[in-house]
């Protein structure tokens, strides 16, 4: 629960603290007070649990996400499909992949509220005709998944991932 009057501990941040984190490290108890933005930057999930994720909750979050930022009403509609940010807030559905760029700022805040993060850490997609960077990112992700499979002793999966990694590496 927010403790009124407390400000965020992060240097230079004067926002009201909404997250009060008590940690026990080496038998020493410490308490940190953080605002939502600093908490999420530290990877702390501030989303409240709900018993069943109803569309209405999600739309309410959308509303909040939209209201918090002044000037969002001026966001240009998506150039590709013509959806406006207001139209998105009404239905909760985006119209095309370009909407993610058109509404990037508002969406980043919304995604962070919903998921507790906005950075994808799962599968890296390899498009048909990949560039060297695409290949590198994909390989990194595969190696990460391989380590994880080995750690959790899922050797069947590890073998599949190893084959996939080998397929990327130059022959010989």
């Amino acid at each position: 629960m927010p403790e009124p009057g407390k400000l965020c501990d992060e240097p230079g941040c004067k926002n009201p603290a909404v997250v009060h984190l008590t940690q026990v490290v080496n038998n020493k108890i410490s308490t940190h007070h953080l605002c939502e933005a600093c908490a999420s930057a530290k990877g702390i999930n501030t989303a409240k649990p709900t018993s069943s994720f109803a569309l209405s909750d999600f739309l309410a979050q959308l509303g909040e996400a939209g209201q918090t930022q002044a000037g969002e009403a001026d966001v240009e509609p998506c150039e590709f499909c013509g959806l406006t940010f207001a139209g998105f807030k009404e239905t909760g559905r985006l119209g095309c992949s370009h909407c993610y760029s058109a509404f990037e700022g508002g969406l980043r805040r919304l995604l962070t509220r919903i998921h507790g993060a906005s950075q994808h850490v799962g599968k890296v997609y390899l498009p048909p005709n990949p560039t060297a960077t695409d290949l590198e990112k994909r390989l990194d992700a595969l190696r990460r998944r391989l380590n994880r499979a080995v750690e959790s002793e899922d050797f069947e999966r590890a073998a599949v991932l190893r084959d996939q990694i080998r397929a990327f590496e130059p022959a010989g």
Binding site: F58, G92, L94, L107, I114, S118, H120, G122, Y125
Partner: peptide, 12 residues
């Protein structure tokens, strides 16, 4: 950043 893009942000 956002990974695979979906119609509803709850699936992104």
């Amino acid at each position: 950043e956002f990974g695979f893009l979906t119609s509803c942000p709850t699936n992104a």
